[in-house]
Design a protein around this nucleic acid. Structure first.
Lengths: 333, 333
DNA sequence: TTGTAGGCGTTATCAG
DNA sequence: CTGATAACGCCTACAA
């Protein structure tokens, strides 16, 4: 396997020149450049990525951290990232996160020196400790579909999405609209939910009140949705419509409704969230997330943050789209 | 950031000794070892992964290649791989494949010198050309849920799974059992299907014949299943049961059946494949794939193949499990 | 515009 | 068992 000095010898130049050609430096005459390129092709030379990384003192690698929960969305986001990174010679090291403990472990590994030149964290916020350590190491972090003011973030505009969905229900004539939300941090299910802001804003704007118990926080799984519906149905005034913060939860709601003989959408309208390919089959009205664009934006952002490291973090919101199918209708009477 | 010679100086030893400690060599006296370890901790020393890779002339990286099609299975497999790799200091570079062309491109990138120490290819077989090039470069390949006799493979025992499913239908009294299969290579949908072998064997063993047109090959998507059902229903003798080679396709079958007013399981029994979490909700009887174990086995295999490079490739089959839910019943009369 | 020399942080190979 | 020293393949001054 030829190395840079083999090429230099074959082309009758010094290794510095070969290196410059390799890196597209303008400080090479066209004639020399061509001789070098010819030599490279003749010898089938391929520069060693490890040696380059070593010399540059950069890994040319990004870490991609993703919870198992993100199952349904992950590949689409990953593909978006690769769309952008394919133009560069960055590589992506993927790490999954299964539990909260696990997250700590993965964060620790990322902090190890010289690991990667940047981190993409999908679907879950970082711990403050992690943010601090990465900042100390000057390794940029970009959040994907998660928001944290002190960190670069690319997120879905959940407020707008929830508001649009609620407004749609109001337009159909609903006044008793519940929210089955999911926590911002799936590993620490406290604090506000993802959709709460937009939900409240839209209802206030429409002059509709939110009865006690109409805002449920549920696990990000099918059973979470089912449990939340149970809770809603136990209320004195049951809702006629529900916005559900993930399709998995929405499936649970549908199932529970079916079991109880509640007809959808006649007696209960349901709006899901994410447009998982599977729910198309079920005719679920849902909010479509721009997953691939999320990945693209995040990757471009990480690339640009690298070059200007002291800019201060921003949060970019990407728009969603309400996909109307068959689980919403005007309320029964 | 301290390097190995800082540690050596602090511990009053040579760098060779520090290196030996780092790599757990037995050629270090316990006393020296402890002094070195102490120095490392004092200085908060962390060895540079890039420098190590450079020195060892190995990247300590595996490539993980996965088609977007594998969406629903991927994270679980990835997690299995990580379960094993977490014990080592190997890292995983993930690359997605969207189209057949794309696959070529990704294969090419993997062949670039010094890229990785091994390749895990999920859910799709390699091209012969790729196999050859990787063999030339002495980089091992392990197939995950795909089979190719010339390459190390860890696969699901689709034959046994299909046979079990078919036998189950026969046991319920079915005699007209169709197969909606998927192609071995999703990017080149020719040749035999994944489940065909087991399907035929089980029917032959039960002395049941396969009418013309009962073996449908369909796209690996919802609409593929729907189209296949359409074709089956156009036959002179329609089937009373169908084994479907993926849950996505099975959803399409369910949908198409519902649209046509065919009651499941009364008029048509359906068995899916994969046990996608979502289908639990639909009560689909399905074949559960050991995704995580698939990942674990593949990773262990790759690790061991590395150490003994001239062993000849084997194919390991992992067992599946029939999950009985509500879409199968004895035939109508 | 080009060549040369030094450095990056390990590992591996020798003497001792 | 241990220490010195030579790779490893590239990048980046600096000198020409």
């Amino acid at each position: 396997m030829p190395n840079i000095s083999d090429v230099a010898r074959a082309a009758g130049v010094g290794i510095g020149t070969v290196s410059r050609v390799l890196n597209g430096s303008p400080l090479v005459s066209e004639a020399t450049r061509q001789r070098v390129v010819a030599a490279m092709e003749r010898l089938r030379y391929q520069p060693s990525p490890i040696a380059r990384a070593f010399g540059r003192r950069r890994t040319h690698t990004f870490d991609l951290l993703v919870p198992l929960l993100a199952q349904a969305f992950f590949l689409e986001i990953l593909r978006g990232i690769e769309d952008v990174l394919a133009q560069t010679d960055y590589r992506l090291v993927t790490r999954t996160i299964e539990t909260g403990q696990d997250r700590e472990r993965v964060f620790d590994e990322c902090c190890a020196r010289g690991r990667s030149d940047g981190v993409l964290l999908v679907w879950a916020p970082p711990t403050q400790h992690f943010v601090q350590r990465m900042a100390d190491a000057a390794v940029p972090i970009v959040l994907v579909n998660a928001v944290e003011p002190t960190v670069w973030s690319v997120a879905v505009d959940h407020d707008a999405a929830a508001a649009q969905a609620v407004t749609y229900c109001v337009g159909l004539g609903h006044r008793r609209i519940a929210l089955i939300d999911r926590p911002q941090d799936p590993f620490a299910p406290d604090g506000p939910g993802v959709c709460q802001g937009g939900y409240r804003a839209a209802l206030t704007a429409s002059d509709v009140s939110v009865p006690d118990g109409y805002e449920q926080m549920a696990e990000l799984e099918t059973r979470g949705g089912a449990a939340a519906l149970d809770a809603l149905l136990a209320l004195p005034e049951t809702p006629t419509a529900a916005l559900v913060a993930s399709d998995a939860q929405a499936l649970g709601v549908l199932e529970s409704a079916r079991t109880r003989g509640i007809r959808v959408p006649r007696e209960l309208s349901i709006i899901g969230y994410n447009d998982n390919p599977v729910v198309e089959y079920l005719g679920l009205t849902t909010v479509k997330l721009p997953l691939r664009e999320l990945g693209r934006h995040a990757a471009s952002l990480l690339l640009s943050v690298q070059s200007e490291p002291n800019a201060s973090p921003t949060t970019t919101y990407l728009p969603t789209q309400l996909v109307v199918r068959g689980t919403c209708a005007p309320p029964a009477q």
